[in-house]
Every structure is written in C-alpha cells, then in structure tokens.
Amino acid sequence: MSKTIDFYYDFISPASYFALVRLKEICTRTGTTINYKPMLLGGVFKAQGNTAPVTVPAKWEWIKIDFARTAEYYGIPYTLNPHFIFSTVNAMRGALWAISENRIEEYNQAMYQAAWAEGKDLSSADVLIDTLNKAGFDADTVMQAITRPEIKQALITSTQEAAARGVFGAPTMFVGDEIYFGQDRLDWVERALTDQINA
C-alpha cells in the first residue's frame, strides 16, 4: 500500500520551506508521497486564537537566528525576506491551481525559492508574474486562474479544513491521524513513516 503524508503550508513560513526540502528527502527514503495542503496561515492563526512569532519581539529575535542556523546546517539557500510580512493570498491560490494541473512540485519550488532564497515580495503581482515566467509557467494563465471564484473559495475552504483538523501553525504534517508540527519534528515524521514500512 502506498504511503502519503499530508503537508499543510503557506509560503509566508520559512519553517515550511526548510521542512519541505528535508521532507522530500525523507519521502524518497521511505517511499512516501506528499499530499500538499495549501492554506492561509493568517486564517489558521485567527481560527485557533494563535499569533505569529513576529508579534513577540524576544521570540522573533531568537527565531531569526534559528532560521539562519537551520539553513546553514542543512545547506538550504536562505535569506531573511526584507518584505516580511508579505501577503501570500495570490501565491497560495496559485498553489491550488498548480495542484489541479499536476505541477505543484515545481510551483512550490519556484515560490519558496523566490520568497526565502531570493527575498522577493510575493504580494507583488509583478514579482509573481516574473517568478512564474522564469519557472516555466504561463503567468497569464495562472494570474487569470487565481481570480476565479472557485479558486478563491477553495483556499478559504482549505484553510477552514486545516483549522478543523487541529492545524495551528506551519508546517504541520499528518502521518495517518498523527499530527506533527514544525520543521524540527521531521525526525519523528520519518520514524512514523518507517514504522509504517515495518508494520
């Protein structure tokens, strides 16, 4: 039986970027397929009464150091985005379009590369168009798709479903019904996937 892991994410989260890079390696080792679950992190925060780490100055200062440390340790290209906090609504709507087109892997790569390796502002339509074109997408097609009511509603619905499942931040992963939160819990994710192999 094929194994899958549900991966809840938003491009606003550098921790999700780090997690995805490592999760792909884990999935290769364990024969697991990633089931991508785009959501709006701000909507999840609101639904759960949570707040962004940036709102706690001492925590944010530590997180900035920890992100840089994590990127260096794992050899992941990273820069603290000077436009943070930027809107990801259109980029996340585009992720839902990419899923429907079976192009989500390359789409995620393009968006995370732009946001957290190149420090670009994904809230800018011009940046989004440039990023899409450089990644081999037809930007006109994507930009038209994300204006469609069904795509807009799909992102609202996916965010609501994430919160209803108990998601309170990003990245969040589910192996079966077990929830794992944070890019620093991937060892536990791999253990759960390996246990499935040995079961």
Rank of each mutant, 00 (worst) to 15 (best):
A110S: 10
N90I: 09
G166W: 06
D121Q: 07
D140N: 13
V167H: 03
I76S: 01
F86V: 04
S123G: 07
V127R: 00
K134N: 13
M173C: 03
V89S: 07
A110C: 06
D126M: 03
R103C: 07
I146W: 06
Q144I: 15
A162M: 01
F137H: 00
T88F: 00
S87F: 07
Y73W: 14
F168G: 01
T131C: 09
T157W: 13
D140M: 09
W116E: 02
D130V: 07
W116L: 04
A115E: 08
A139L: 07
R93F: 00
Y78S: 08
N133Y: 12
L122V: 01
S100A: 09
A139S: 15
F168M: 06
A139Q: 09
G136L: 02
I104W: 02
W97E: 02
S158Y: 09
T141R: 15
L132N: 05
L122S: 03
T147V: 06
Y78L: 05
E118H: 14
A139H: 08
T141F: 15
A114V: 10
L155P: 00
I146Y: 05
E72F: 09
G166P: 08
T79C: 13
D121W: 13
A117F: 10
M173E: 07
T131R: 08
R165A: 13
D121R: 04
A110H: 04
F174E: 02
I76W: 09
G166Q: 06
W97G: 01
T131Q: 07
Q113V: 12
F168C: 01
G119F: 02
E161L: 10
T88D: 05
Y73I: 08
G75W: 10
S158N: 01
R148S: 13
I104H: 04
N102T: 07
D121E: 05
N102W: 13
A91S: 14
M143I: 12
L122W: 06
Y107Q: 03
T157Y: 07
D121K: 08
D138G: 11
L155T: 01
D130N: 12
F174Y: 11
G119H: 06
E178T: 14
Q153G: 13
D126Y: 08
R103M: 11
T79S: 10
Q153T: 09
D140V: 11
N102D: 15
A98E: 06
A145D: 08
Y73P: 14
A135G: 04
V89C: 06
S124Y: 10
Q160H: 10
Q113P: 13
E105P: 11
A114S: 10
I156K: 15
K120L: 14
G75R: 09
A98H: 00
D126A: 03
G94E: 11
T79V: 14
R103Q: 14
P82L: 03
N90G: 11
I104T: 03
E150R: 07
G176L: 00
D140K: 13
E161G: 06
E105G: 14
A114L: 08
Y74R: 11
V127N: 07
L96N: 03
G136Q: 05
G176E: 01
I129D: 15
I76D: 01
S100Y: 10
